[in-house]
């Protein structure tokens, strides 16, 4: 365990993060191709599946363009906060990285729950959920403001002394772990794993439109957060993927901006200012219920 105590420089951490980021994408693409072969064999490789997958990667490209524009500012906010306001500055080593991953995963749980609980957050996160399919490419289906909300939930980690590069590494680890969950290929994993970790089964539930599965399983790596905080649901009946109302489009531009277009339409057509306020702060389920009264 001595290697966990070995002091690392910020550059070591940055290098590790870049390495994971780059190589994992290659692995994810390989896994996606295997999934495609599986769908071909099962005769489920449809024109819609193909169009949807292409749209997913185009949204990823658009998201990367936005991140390239705001990334330096995002990192700058973390570095400034860490250098000026951090309570302490924790040493950079394996133990600190492990603690940071656990806390970044907890931060992710709350960020994810937040995105599902209000109209403004949902407008960007709905993009990720709007696919009627469930495969690795869906993990890369991003909304335009997906970079924005993590800032507020992860910045406290810099305040309590985690180096920004350690936080970014932890965020990447949480993201990478979740990418692998977007698959129908893996049914159920051994019980101890299903009990502690987020799994493809748990994450299918999260992407479901089935009534009993709505707003469940927000976890990133550890499903124990959902079990502790009462937002867990077990996969029992087959899952229907997507959102209400259905998007019915594989146009990547329409997909990418669909959430905010829908929110703006709702705000424009709202009967009152109070209703507009509720559209922003109440859950998307509330808006859906109002429209179906």
């Amino acid at each position: 365990m001595e290697f966990l105590s070995q002091i690392l420089t910020p550059d070591d951490v940055w290098g590790l993060e870049a390495w994971i980021d780059d190589w994992f994408f290659v692995i994810a693409i390989a896994l996606f191709l295997i999934e495609c072969v599986r769908y071909v064999i099962k005769k489920k490789f449809t024109k819609d599946f193909f169009g949807d997958s292409v749209a997913n990667f185009v949204t990823l490209g658009l998201f990367i363009l936005i991140v390239a524009t705001v990334g330096a500012t995002y990192a700058g906010v973390f570095i400034f906060t860490y250098e000026q306001f951090s309570l302490v500055q924790l040493p950079i080593n394996g133990w600190t990285i492990l603690c940071c991953i656990i806390l970044a995963d907890l931060a992710y749980y709350w960020e994810h729950r937040f995105l599902h609980m209000n109209g403004f957050g949902w407008a960007t996160h709905t993009v990720h959920h709007s696919s009627p399919h469930f495969n690795i490419s869906v993990a890369y289906r991003h909304g335009p403001m997906d970079w924005f909300f993590p800032l507020f939930f992860h910045l406290p980690l810099a305040l309590i002394g985690f180096h920004p590069f350690v936080i970014f590494l932890a965020e990447i680890v949480v993201q990478v772990f979740q990418t692998l969950l977007h698959t129908e290929t893996v049914k159920k994993l051994p019980r101890p794993i299903e009990a502690i970790f987020n799994t493809p089964s748990h994450h299918r539930v999260h992407h479901a439109t089935n009534k009993q599965y709505l707003d469940k399983n927000y976890a990133g790596i550890f499903i124990i957060w959902d079990k502790m905080f009462g937002t867990f649901a077990e996969e029992k009946e087959p899952v229907n993927y997507g959102i209400y109302p259905k998007l019915n489009s594989v146009n990547p531009i329409k997909v990418f901006f669909s959430g905010y277009v829908k929110l703006c339409q709702r705000l424009w057509n709202a009967p009152s200012w109070g209703y507009r306020w509720n559209l922003l702060v109440k859950s998307p389920t509330w808006a859906w219920q109002q429209e179906n009264k």
Binding site: S5, W95, T96, C99, L103, L106, W110, I160, G161, F229
Partner: peptide, 20 residues
């Protein structure tokens, strides 16, 4: 849930802090 989360943060922060 929020209160429990704060306790969890304190525990893991303490682990990282006192490891030295």
């Amino acid at each position: 849930s929020i209160l429990t989360s704060i306790v969890i943060v304190v525990i893991f922060w303490a682990c990282a802090f006192f490891q030295t």
